[in-house]
Write a protein that binds this DNA or RNA. Sequence first.
DNA 1: CTGAGTGCAAAACATTTGCACTTGT
DNA 2: ACAAGTGCAAATGTTTTGCACTCAG
Lengths: 147, 147
Amino acid sequence: MYLSNSLSTLELLKKNKIKATPQRIAIYNMLVNTKQHPSVDIIYKSLKKDFPSMSLATIYKTVDMFKEAGLIQELKDASSTNRYDANIQPHPHLICIKCNRIDDLEMDLPFSEDIISTINDTTNYTILYSQICLYGYCPDCKMKERK
Amino acid sequence: MYLSNSLSTLELLKKNKIKATPQRIAIYNMLVNTKQHPSVDIIYKSLKKDFPSMSLATIYKTVDMFKEAGLIQELKDASSTNRYDANIQPHPHLICIKCNRIDDLEMDLPFSEDIISTINDTTNYTILYSQICLYGYCPDCKMKERK
DNA sequence: CTGAGTGCAAAACATTTGCACTTGT
DNA sequence: ACAAGTGCAAATGTTTTGCACTCAG
């Protein structure tokens, strides 16, 4: 089971001082068990069967809270819709500009801590996190596409 | 003048088989003359004095067409609003998560052609372009922020 | 002259908000 | 018990669309 060697979702939320409601546990579990980088709407549809009355607003509030707590990361697909990832390790994303599918790229991050420090020094920004997005056609859309 | 050594906007549009309307010329000129990565709304407000009847829809259609033609690049600020840049050289962006200001980072792109080829081969994606976004506080917001 | 472009208003979405009701601790 | 969370509906903000009018080539 996915939690065998780690905290249960309940414990994780408590550890982060987040009140553990069934909805929040379900949302986190869904995110941690998929590689699909789901949108709020996908989360909503996916949990609909277990929580028929769950509202989109709850999911928006929840993912926002998880993001603030650093439990998940937010990214945007090619059409700008927010997508969520329970893998909080910075890692490049492959984004299909046709179907909006998002995959992870297994690769080292080009921005080391050193580089971030240099950027902070030279630009006067305070960089907190970075994202690398590679846009193009996914394997499926590549075949259908002729341009 | 900014065009002294290059094509006029009129010529550039014609070269790209884009019908050169006054609106399109004005939008492109505005983008090429700023480092601010403006949003559609900013472009709209900025051109309002010269084109009082210009509509937002025209600007949306125009930037989309320019993007498809490869004349500008689109990026998204921290709140997801689309922003535009007439500098089509891939370059990392610094994005303020408080005021949504976007600056360019003068730095080499970590993704060389070689790396893109490798990614294309190993992932079966066809990568067309990439974006590197560094999120944090800009110099102005850094000072105001206390957290 | 004619198809492409523009402006307007309405529509379509994604996301946020206010508030009464419910629930975890 | 009570502050915090949820669900609903309405509001907001951005982007898209349909269509009659206009204009660049």
